[in-house]
């Protein structure tokens, strides 16, 4: 076994030694960091089954999973030009500190005044075969039953959810990339008086809040008793997507 490891190590060393240096980037471009602060109303979201929150239906609940895809990010510069990130798929996982922020690279220098993105994964990537990076099916967000990506997932427990016995576990997997129950939502957030100033010296950090209470509020009030779970593209799932379409707000920009 040791021997195998050693050999494997040797092989690995040799192969990596053949790699060429990365090409030098000549374009005048910098980066922007996006950080997601997950909240329940005014409190920071804590993932466990002890800390409880109250939704718009007055149900008490706690959260153990909160994940969502942020895709097809576009930044608008003050001169009206738009920067679109290539291969723009980012999985945010409130339960994994390594997955609450990401960096956009190759952003041309300038002052940016707005961002837009999709919550979920654009329809094409749902049926384009094996993907990698944040779309790797090993991350558990690829749905094998009518294949496609889970756009967002919220799970936890609520005493008002009586469908799941003593555990009161609810789970909402938002899926559906086509037809009348298409649950893809586009978010546009103007920075108003703020600006993200991308320059050789500054890598701005845009802090966005994501509020789980929005899942239950507007336009449709949803209770745990009525909806203990979703896992199909249908009207209930779409109601969640319509509700959470406005869960993001700009908290601050640090230049």
């Amino acid at each position: 076994m040791k021997k195998q490891f050693f050999l494997f190590f040797l092989i690995a060393v040799f192969i990596s030694s053949c790699k060429k240096d990365a090409p030098v980037n000549l374009n005048p471009a910098g980066s922007v960091i996006f950080k997601f602060i997950n909240m329940a109303g005014d409190s920071n979201l804590i993932l466990n089954n002890i800390k409880t929150y109250i939704n718009a239906h007055n149900d008490t609940f706690s959260v153990h999973t909160f994940k969502y895809y942020i895709s097809n990010i576009k930044l608008t510069r003050n001169d009206g030009t738009i920067f679109s990130e290539k291969e723009s798929y980012h999985l945010i996982d409130a339960g994994n500190s390594k997955r609450t922020q990401f960096t956009l690279a190759n952003v041309p220098y300038g002052n940016y005044t707005a961002v837009s993105f999709i919550i979920g994964v654009d329809s094409v990537r749902n049926f384009s075969g094996a993907q990698t990076g944040d779309l790797d099916p090993a991350l558990g967000m690829f749905w094998m039953w009518d294949t496609g990506y889970i756009f967002a997932e919220l799970a936890g427990s609520s005493p008002q959810d009586t469908a799941h016995g003593l555990n009161h576990f609810f789970s909402y997997a938002i899926i559906g990339y086509s037809g009348q129950y298409n649950a893809l939502k586009t978010v546009r957030l103007p920075f108003y008086s703020d600006t993200a100033k991308v320059s050789p010296l500054i890598t701005p950090q845009v802090n966005l809040k994501a509020d789980v209470l929005e899942w239950f509020k507007t336009p449709t009030i949803i209770s745990f008793a009525a909806v203990p779970f979703t896992d199909l593209p249908n009207q209930t799932t779409l109601n969640f997507a319509n509700n959470y379409a406005d869960m993001f707000t700009l908290q601050s920009i640090r230049n």
Partner: peptide, 28 residues
């Protein structure tokens, strides 16, 4: 017809409890 692309087809038997009952990460 639940699977729409040949490439992702193996994910179903690999992770199906009744078939190979494995996780993608373990296989990799």
């Amino acid at each position: 017809g639940g699977i729409t692309n040949l490439e992702v087809m193996p994910l179903a038997p690999l992770t199906n409890h009744f078939e190979m009952n494995e996780t993608i990460n373990n296989v990799v």
